[in-house]
Simulated assay, not measured.
Amino acid sequence: PVHLDNFEEYVNRMHRDSDYLFSEEYAAIQQLAPKIEDISCRAPREHQIPCHAAKLDGNKEKNRFTDILPFDFSRVKLLPIDDDDECSDYINASSLPGVSSKTEYIAAQGPKSRTVNEFWRMIWEQNSSIIVMVTNLLERGKAKCFQYWPNADSEPVLFCDLQVQLRSESVIGKYIIR
């Protein structure tokens, strides 16, 4: 644990040498934590938490990764746009509890080009006011997230029925606030 009074100093120390200490800590955590596949393989079938919606044929292509799926009980359900399509309410996102409520946060995979409309539907339907992106668009040459916002010099972009406009962009250290 890091005491709050020492947090800024701790973060500055961790950032030295191209974030070397962050890399070391991340590697140590990875070695301690079991992999998702290991947990599901060891758990008896009756103790596995279902994620049937994510495995439906119409939803499989909406998952960026095949081993990171939302549980049925906590997945964010979009308002269905087609009553005959059982997959129109799906997005790979889960509601997470916070201090004030059972669904204070949403964890979602970075949208793909073919799921960016569902991503913005979720933002609108859930009345989300802040999006925190914790990945880069590309990492080690692999796409991790589709750019779901317009460029600074472009016109507003239409995603499904929602018009998205970039009003400002500020670079603060390694972070960008849009």
Results as ranks from 00 to 15, higher is better:
residue 164 V to W: 13
residue 99 V to M: 14
residue 4 L to V: 07
residue 108 A to W: 00
residue 114 R to P: 00
residue 28 A to I: 00
residue 147 Q to A: 10
residue 152 A to T: 09
residue 107 A to N: 09
residue 141 G to A: 07
residue 152 A to E: 10
residue 35 K to N: 04
residue 37 E to C: 03
residue 25 E to S: 05
residue 77 K to A: 09
residue 174 K to D: 15
residue 124 W to K: 04
residue 83 D to S: 13
residue 17 D to Y: 06
residue 70 P to C: 03
residue 85 D to S: 07
residue 93 A to V: 05
residue 49 I to R: 08
residue 153 D to K: 12
residue 139 E to D: 12
residue 51 C to R: 01
residue 158 L to V: 14
residue 6 N to L: 03
residue 148 Y to C: 12
residue 41 C to S: 10
residue 69 L to N: 10
residue 113 S to K: 04
residue 117 N to G: 08
residue 92 N to L: 03
residue 85 D to P: 01
residue 92 N to M: 03
residue 110 G to I: 04
residue 168 S to W: 11
residue 107 A to C: 13
residue 176 I to N: 08
residue 172 I to H: 11
residue 43 A to V: 01
residue 18 S to T: 06
residue 46 E to F: 00
residue 6 N to A: 01
residue 149 W to K: 13
residue 94 S to W: 00
residue 114 R to F: 02
residue 8 E to G: 00
residue 91 I to K: 00
residue 100 S to M: 13
residue 163 Q to F: 05
residue 178 R to P: 15
residue 123 I to W: 05
residue 148 Y to F: 15
residue 127 N to T: 14
residue 96 L to H: 07
residue 161 D to M: 11
residue 146 F to Q: 09
residue 31 Q to G: 08
residue 144 K to R: 15
residue 8 E to S: 06
residue 163 Q to L: 12
residue 49 I to W: 02
residue 41 C to V: 06
residue 14 M to D: 02
residue 116 V to N: 05
residue 9 E to Y: 01
residue 43 A to T: 08
